[in-house]
Design a protein around this nucleic acid. Sequence first.
DNA 1: CTGAAGTTGTGAAAACAGTAACAATGTTAC
DNA 2: GTAACATTGTTACTGTTTTCACAACTTCAG
Lengths: 211, 211
Amino acid sequence: MKSEIPPNTVARLSLYRRLLEAWLEKGTTHLYSHEIASMACVTPAQVRRDLMAIGYSGSPSRGYSVDALEDSIGRFLGSDTVRKIALVGMGNLGRALATYFVSRAPRFRMTAAFDNDPRKTGRVIAGCMVHPVEAIPGIIPAEGIRTAVLALPPESAQEMADTLVKAGVKGILNFAPVPLRLPGDVFLENRDVTASLEKVAFFSGQPREGN
Amino acid sequence: MKSEIPPNTVARLSLYRRLLEAWLEKGTTHLYSHEIASMACVTPAQVRRDLMAIGYSGSPSRGYSVDALEDSIGRFLGSDTVRKIALVGMGNLGRALATYFVSRAPRFRMTAAFDNDPRKTGRVIAGCMVHPVEAIPGIIPAEGIRTAVLALPPESAQEMADTLVKAGVKGILNFAPVPLRLPGDVFLENRDVTASLEKVAFFSGQPREGN
DNA sequence: CTGAAGTTGTGAAAACAGTAACAATGTTAC
DNA sequence: GTAACATTGTTACTGTTTTCACAACTTCAG
């Protein structure tokens, strides 16, 4: 028995859902794979395979039911229950992320934010109560938080990651520009902005083949 | 003749270089692949393969010369000349990125920033002069900017991307949570924070095998 | 009812990324 | 000088992700 979901599929499902929600409001009832593909800027085959992964079936000649598919993706991603997130680091990036999530990603709740700067702790910033980092071992398990976002300077990222994992966190979205050494059972997604920009800058220079 | 650099290799090279710089300051002259690998949290084979891609050779029993390797990566990534970047969108995220680049990524120069909010244009924010978006077709070609960062609300992202491409931009780092439709010769890197978080949250729930 | 049109679901192939393995090589000890 | 050692450079392999291609299916027109 083997059932593994590719991480990229999960990310695309998130996108499909957002696109479907827009069509749902417009009253569209059915969409073909090539229509979804066009909106998501991927191939139709990719869409069909992604939907196969979650076991949702459309109908030939009618396509996918927007309503049922949206529901199916939602249940697969597990978002009937709003998911709790911890944010560590309330610098410029941390604040921007907090603001973004409050206004644009209502499916996630920033249950707790942490910072080691006493001028920031004890206050509500961008809609989030900011606690001192010493409170991590108390709050994370109590709230049952399993997912954390790291928006820290590189110096403290590894230490905070260790603290979070010890407190029970099982997935980290890391914006600090340093590699993190974590146990294998913790899912890690690095979003090193410098490396991303280096990549884009590199391929901006090189000519690339058109389509 | 075939010489293609995997995008992931470029991103890792960026990381290696930053790690090497730190050792360079400490006066270390040589490092083995397994030492670099350990710092970067990848396998030694991965490091050797990445360095093979840029044609740098180390010496058996002495490893890689920190100095020469740093230089070699630098020349490969093309950063002898500081690279010019345009930032579009000076909201919370845009400001955070601008601040970050000014202080932490001196190899990139945010040559120009753009926003459509008149309260922001004409001023210097986070060390960047902010121009109205109407100035894009004038400034981008004049400065020879080929790389842009999009930190915009989803509604205007596609339109700004089109404007940038028309002005000569060949690579876009997109933080807006929408897919962009671009010509095939433009390199696109999406950093959809919602999708990233959805991915991490999904795998935080599922138990994963340890190492 | 039958055929045409167009879509889905999926096995097979291709492209891509990462790992393992090992011959070749430089270094050191003696 | 030579043998032992540890590391590099590279090829072959493994595994994952994406694309291709097509049989099976549903609908509709006539």
